[in-house]
Design a protein around this nucleic acid. Structure first.
Lengths: 207, 207
DNA sequence: TTCAACATACCGACTGGTCGGTCGGTTATT
DNA sequence: AATAACCGACCGACCAGTCGGTATGTTGAA
């Protein structure tokens, strides 16, 4: 039953430990012990402790971009796209909460080149959402008074912050929270003209 | 001109360095060098590196609570209070961006007792905002469909996240961003009944 | 089929260096 | 004189990363 490859065991153990004690609160020794392997096994699979951190980051952000693109392509109007993105967003956050905690707490300690790679993907992700907002404004669904880039950052902040307080065993599921967020954001953004569609859409989305 | 007390010099230096390289990226040696003092001077003023981190945290959060309480007491309706809180919030964030960066990145490394003290103040702060939302809902100014506690967390997340992207030298001032946030949040929350007041208030707030 | 040559995966004692914290001593203040 | 403020050499613990080694395939020529 212990047939998982070492690399995967290390990633799992590291994630668990980093999430609990932080990157600097965990030594490579502790990781390899938890993963039932050795220093040698570790450095055979990873160039450095940094690279391990980077890989943890990458798993999650890559997935997030993938999902968001899919949400974008699957729907055709700004309102539905926005809702779909918010849904996929929150879903990912429920799934990868540990990754994200590590991601945001520790990414500043990564080396320059790793940081660049990460930031590139973060930007990619942000632009996807921003584009949806912008298209919605052009189409007249979303209010033009508020600049798309700031709205984007506001939404991202709102969702990202959940990693600080969301409790998997709490009274509210992530889907329920997503519904609230969608309601909140749509009311903040939508124009009179967009209201009919939003009304229709809300039902199919917030089931 | 170099007559600042050592303790203050240490706090300043530490803040600058932590903000740049993170708590674990800076040694006590580096701090005392930057502050033009010595290890002895440091440990005469602080029990440990941890306590230094704690004090940096505390300065900011204490100020934030103070300001928020004042905003609450100075205004008498939920809408004006909410706007005032958002204003003070963002003002504090512009002023203490370094503190906040350190605050959120590193607080997990504090010892249990320090963490408790910090969390207590965070909660205090959150409850202030939540109460305003709740009062607004009871008074019929804010929509009741969305739970006050989640809305509170959404707003806090939105604002807190600015520490990640706000650029002091960027094109938008913090006041401008606060105006956008107020617009965003009010549109998300307000009922038909609340609209007249919001309209009036918006002018005095978003100057 | 066999075995030698090579490659990959993994092991764990060890090292070089760092860093938080101490302590005996010195200087400034009251 | 007495106390508080400050100095800086030093200590012990810790820790990322190394390195010489083993063990387990994998290939391919005889």
């Amino acid at each position: 039953m212990k047939k998982k490859p070492v690399k995967e065991r290390i990633l799992d153990a590291a994630l668990r430990l980093f999430n609990e004690k932080g990157f600097h609160g965990v030594s490579v020794e502790q990781i390899v012990e938890e993963a039932n392997t050795s220093k040698g096994g570790f450095y055979h699979n990873f160039k450095s402790k940094d690279e391990l951190l980077y890989q943890i980051h990458d798993v999650f952000i890559t997935h997030a971009i993938e999902e968001t693109k899919e949400a974008y392509n699957h729907y055709k109007t700004p309102i539905t796209r926005l809702c779909a993105i918010l849904d996929s967003f929150t879903k990912i956050f429920a799934l990868y909460q540990s990754h994200i905690t590590v991601f945001y707490q520790e990414s500043m300690y990564l080396s320059e080149s790793f940081q660049k790679a990460i930031n590139l993907k973060r930007d990619q992700y942000r632009h996807l959402l921003e584009q949806v907002i912008r298209e919605g404004q052009e189409r007249g669904d979303f209010r033009k008074e508020i600049p798309a880039n700031i709205v984007t950052l506001a939404i991202i902040g709102m969702i990202n912050w959940t990693y600080k307080w969301f409790d998997q065993n709490g009274p509210l599921s992530m889907e329920a929270i997503a519904d609230i967020f969608k309601d909140f954001v749509l009311h903040a953004l939508i124009t009179e003209a967009g209201k009919q569609e939003a009304g229709k859409v809300a039902k199919s989305f917030s089931r």
